[in-house]
Write a protein that binds this DNA or RNA. Structure first.
Lengths: 349, 349
DNA sequence: CTGTTAGCGCGTTCAT
DNA sequence: ATGAACGCGCTAACAG
């Protein structure tokens, strides 16, 4: 098979062996010259680099991974429908933070989707094969077994969001989350301080920890109010604008005297805002609104929205930093990081 | 180093060798048993599978890629800012089509971003290292050298969009595009048939072929109208809603008698729609509007919008099919595919 | 049907 | 500073 050629009608891809031959050195020297260049004479160095350029040499990453036990790339896996992935600015913002940190460390970021059970199974098999040095998983619903399963395969995992249950104790699994409970409380307390007494909540999906945490924050404050925290003051949403609008309508129907709304994210706040206005309510005079997120670059989404800011880009960076540390085998100061939030008061409250 | 252990505090990851030993067969037999199972006795088959399960064996993908010369995954690279990637439903839709087709062929899809020059350089180096069997590139701006460069490295490339210039002749590079010229013409001709005579165009980025093609389609029809196709009837947009609104305002300012607008995509149409209404124009009575795309699931974006439908999901599938064929080394019927569009008339015209 | 062997391309000892 | 040799984990080709 001396004559085996690539399917691309070209000649055989140059290997390190060929570069070495071209440069008149051994493969070992060529390898050293190309990485770091320690213990290599100037002459050899230059000869190798010239040969590599001349031949258009590109190191085969599979071979390198095999010997190094590392691929130099990490994955961002999203357990979410592609619609939401591409429509909710939250994902883009996390990705931006992760991306920024990884670029600084010269590691390649790949995004992958794992929506259906079949895909999650495939994702497990795939990542267990170690094409990635580690994975960041965001938007975890329910008691999703995927993160724990991947971590158990020996692949470091960082979850964007909180981790409950036994997964917390898996050594190869870390997390970065905002302090949703405190953040939600600050939002509702702010509404209370503004004299609001009938405060509804449009929650996130209740199969997500983030949804339950923000709901709990709301409840803990509202339950201290005269009217208490009846079921009817809460509507479950799914973080989409449509859910925000629908939620506001339902709250209004159940409580015409509604004077405040806390939504679990800003996208739903936008939906609520337009529904409230369509219902003839003035914001904030009749009903005050507070959201959650305050993502950079989304001022256009809901101008003047009072909201709870979580530093999403920085959280993304933190996820990446944590993961890289785990890949290096470094000890972590804390496996489960909680980041504080900030209330940002604007015109809607 | 007999005792080298993984950093995850666990024992050595099981290799095929260990599975074979556990099953009491040779590595060759174990390999055959695990893939396809040809020429393997029932007994051996079962023993190997049992051993693999017992040990929690996961094949090392790097090793497999190295010998097979194939990774079993392909990349979708987006030359776009993460904001647009995540905000324009077009990308999600292409991704859905690509994804669907790849899943059917059991190949893993990975998304990667290549925005800045530095990132594009890194992307070239990375893909040349063959971690991917092929690459689909969408949203190509200007005379981007990246696709051609990757193809020249022997990695099959399919471009989502048109290809101009010398890249068309690179054997390892194919493309799938809508018939933008004809599509745009049909949109404008439709407006003309509705009696419109003052038809403006809000274009896509003119550094993209798709932007220029749709503009040209508009021009070819409008230039035959009494008023001709003056510069002022065109505004360059960037496919965002804000650009659509701004574009409509500028068109209105230059041509108060504007009675039709063709936008290069539906997202901009939405922006234009609200700007027109804010300016007191009724749609379609005063100004008729036609967009481009008609992506599934976006009825909520611009209800009742007349538009030029391009079958984006199917185009995504076609990109994947084409790429897979190239990876297999199969001959292509046509390297540069052009897909027809359909005018969909609704209430805005 | 099965075991043995030969690489895939590369980084890294270990001598020199 | 350099070359020779080894092995990463796996599949395929070859004998049996």
């Amino acid at each position: 098979m001396e004559d085996s050629r690539a399917a691309d009608g070209g000649r055989q891809r140059p290997t390190l062996e060929m570069v070495a031959a071209e440069a008149g050195v051994s493969r070992g020297t060529a390898s050293r010259a190309l990485n770091g260049g320690h213990n290599v004479s100037r002459r050899a160095m230059e000869a190798v680099q010239a040969a590599a350029t001349r031949l258009g040499y590109r190191p085969n990453l599979a071979a390198r991974s095999l010997v190094l036990g590392r691929s130099g790339s990490i994955g961002l896996v999203v357990s979410e429908s592609d619609e939401r992935l591409f429509s909710d600015p939250y994902f883009a913002t996390v990705a931006r933070g992760v991306h920024a940190e990884l670029m600084a460390h010269d590691v390649q970021l790949v995004l992958a989707l794992a929506q259906t059970p079949a895909e999650r199974e495939r994702m497990l098999r795939w990542s267990a094969g170690r094409p990635l040095d580690g994975v960041i998983i965001i938007s975890v619903h329910g008691a999703d077994p995927l993160p724990g399963a991947i971590a158990t395969e020996g692949v470091p995992v960082v979850i964007g969001g909180a981790v409950e249950g036994p997964d917390r104790d898996i050594p190869g699994l870390a997390s970065v989350d905002a302090d949703n409970l405190t953040g939600a409380r600050s939002a509702v307390e702010h509404l209370v301080s503004r004299g609001r007494t009938r405060i509804g909540h449009i929650s996130g999906p209740l199969d997500m920890v983030v949804g339950r945490d923000r709901l709990e924050g709301w409840r803990s404050v509202v339950s201290g109010l005269p009217g208490g925290a009846p079921q009817t003051l809460t509507v479950e949403g799914d973080f989409t604008e449509a859910a925000g609008a629908e939620g506001a309508r339902r709250l209004l129907a159940a409580h015409p005297d509604l004077d405040g709304v806390f939504t679990a994210n800003d996208v739903m706040a936008r939906g609520a805002l337009s529904a409230l206005q369509q219902a003839g309510r003035r914001v904030p005079q009749d009903v005050a609104v507070v959201g959650f997120d305050d993502l950079p670059g989304t001022e256009g989404i809901s101008p003047g929205l009072t909201t709870v800011r979580q530093p999403v880009i920085e959280m993304g960076r933190q996820m990446a930093r944590t993961l890289l540390a785990m890949v290096e085998g470094l000890p972590l100061a804390e496996r489960h990081t909680v980041v504080p939030t900030t209330l940002v008061v604007r015109e809607t409250s």
